[in-house]
Computed example of a mutant assay.
Amino acid sequence: MSTIICNYAVLRFQPYPETGEFANLGIVMLCNDGQFLQRCETRQRQRITHFFDKLPTEVFTRARREFLEELRRVVKLANAHAEDATMQRRMFQHLVAPRETMFRFSQPGTVATEDPRQALEELFMRYVHHDFSQHENLETRMTSRVAQWLRGFTDRQYNEITLGNDLLQVRFPLVWQVAGRPRQAVKPISFDLEETSRIIEKGDKWLMRMKRLEASGQAPLDTVFVSHEPSETQGPRRRAYQEVTRELTENGLLRIVPDALGKHGVTQAIAAKPTTMH
């Protein structure tokens, strides 16, 4: 199956803009194969009305019904023009554009997938039902996917290896060795974390690990992080990610490749750097 690139945004209910509080209600997704998808919560009324306890129940129920009717109309129209990518893109951009209403969308994010409907379900469970077990397992799924992609290389083989010395041991899931020495390590990693502090802390942890590996002479010649970025294209989480990636890459300790590039883009980037041994 080919990799499909999808843009998505999270539907939020924010009745009181001045407080900044909101509840996630659904996901809308536009894919480069012409699929325009949506999934929204239609049943759990009490979860919302308990959170916004001063909001009359009938106000939320009526507003949600009317908004979802309009959303379904837009999605149906977009899918009727699946061959017109420009029109679909304009409809998506208009739909998720910032506006001062009770229903609004997050900044768009991007995901690479072979199954858009499965990706839609995973995003819905993460953002709407707060299924954090899916988030915690994201790197496991990423590693499995990248490992499958790397099997396409005929000149190398990747295995899980622990690198380091008696003071520091760092496990890499995908390491290519030549004559017992690590030539290239590939680490799928997610920085799509809920809090900016967790993004910074995760980056700092790996920065120190890589510096110590380098100082001990145990670092691979080339290290590649296949990175799952924060979903927002701007804002604090994006700035935290940009700071982390700058610090990780500026001294040449490693390279970062976005997983949104898909199979071809990721494997091409991994293979691009010469990897002759010292």
Score class of each variant (00 low, 15 high):
Cys31Lys: 01
Arg238Met: 08
His278Tyr: 07
Ala179Asn: 15
Pro116Asn: 09
Arg238Trp: 08
Asn137Thr: 00
Gly109Ile: 03
Ala185Gly: 07
Lys76Met: 06
Ala112Gly: 15
Met102His: 09
Glu229Ala: 14
Thr154Ala: 11
Glu250Thr: 03
Lys187Thr: 02
Ala80Trp: 04
Leu77Tyr: 13
Arg117Asn: 00
Val96Glu: 10
Tyr127Trp: 05
Leu167Asp: 12
Ala23Tyr: 14
Ala119Gln: 10
Arg43Asp: 06
Phe52Trp: 11
Gly164Ala: 10
Glu18Asn: 01
Gly20His: 14
Ala219Leu: 09
Glu232Gly: 06
Leu221Ile: 06
Ile4His: 11
Pro220Arg: 08
Arg73Leu: 15
Thr245Trp: 02
Ala260Ile: 03
Cys6Met: 09
Thr110Pro: 05
Glu100Arg: 13
Ala97His: 13
Pro173Asp: 02
Gly265Arg: 03
Asp155Phe: 05
Arg171Thr: 14
Gln14Glu: 15
Val266Thr: 12
Glu229Gln: 15
Pro56Trp: 13
Ala260Gly: 05
Leu253Val: 01
Ile48Thr: 11
Thr86Asp: 12
Phe124His: 11
Ile27Pro: 04
Gly265Met: 04
Asp84Ile: 00
His130Asp: 05
Val186Arg: 04
His50Pro: 00
Thr42Cys: 03
Arg145Cys: 07
Leu11Asp: 02
Leu77Ser: 11
Val244Arg: 00
Arg39Tyr: 03
Val266Cys: 14
Pro182Trp: 02
Ile270Arg: 03
Arg209Lys: 11
Arg64Tyr: 07
Gln184Asp: 01
Leu71Thr: 05
Gln14Ala: 04
Thr3Ser: 15
Ala78Trp: 02
Gly217Lys: 13
